[in-house]
């Protein structure tokens, strides 16, 4: 990851500011996604998961801990906005997604690109959500849903990876800006 040096915040305060910024970005992306027309699929609950972009950035350029923190914060927000059920669904999806991406990183080292990791993240995000929904509503094993969910997750992963790539220069500039401000004040 050649870009990690320039994109890494210098000290703790900078890290905190960046994390807050990423959290805000995640919420904005989620809100943005909600304004999009619903996907013309006969399956409820399949989402692109644009806010995963922020979490992936944290995972790739900060550390595992901040990625987990972001996922948990985001579900906390969902819990406040839409209640315990949605919160649980979001938490399960978010944590499983981060775990899967870390697993991918550890297992393949640099063998997987952002895209591969993003796909893993998206697929497991959907799986985690489906798991909680299935347990709460007692739905049992749903092979058709899984058959649709997997390729959909892959497609969503490719899309979010592409968006992350496109957004990277802007994010890097933000990090540089935070670093400069921080050192200026100190």
């Amino acid at each position: 990851m050649e870009s990690s040096k320039t994109a890494f915040p210098k000290n703790n305060t900078a890290k905190l500011v960046l994390l807050a910024l990423l959290f805000a970005a995640a919420l904005v992306l989620a809100a943005l996604e909600n304004t999009l027309p619903p996907l013309p699929l006969p399956f409820p609950g399949l989402k692109l998961g644009l806010s995963n972009i922020a979490i992936m950035y944290a995972l790739f350029f900060l550390n595992f801990k901040s990625a987990f923190a972001l996922a948990a914060l985001k579900s906390g927000f969902v819990f406040l906005m839409r209640g315990a059920l949605s919160g649980a669904i979001s938490l399960s999806g978010g944590l499983l997604s981060v775990l899967a991406m870390i697993g991918g990183l550890k297992l393949f080292k640099t063998g997987l690109s952002y895209m591969g990791l993003s796909i893993l993240g998206a697929v497991f995000h959907n799986l985690g959500q489906l798991f909680v929904v299935g347990v709460i509503y007692g739905l049992g094993f749903m092979p058709l849903y899984l058959a649709v969910l997997l390729p959909f997750g892959a497609a969503a992963g490719i899309l979010t990876a592409a968006l992350l790539k496109a957004l990277l220069p802007a994010l890097k500039r933000a990090v540089c800006f935070i670093n400069k401000k921080e050192s200026g004040r100190l």
Partner: peptide, 14 residues
């Protein structure tokens, strides 16, 4: 952006 392992992951998912 895309590596061989990625393709394998996609293939596995499909």
């Amino acid at each position: 952006f895309c590596k061989r392992t990625d393709l394998a992951v996609i293939a596995l998912i499909l």
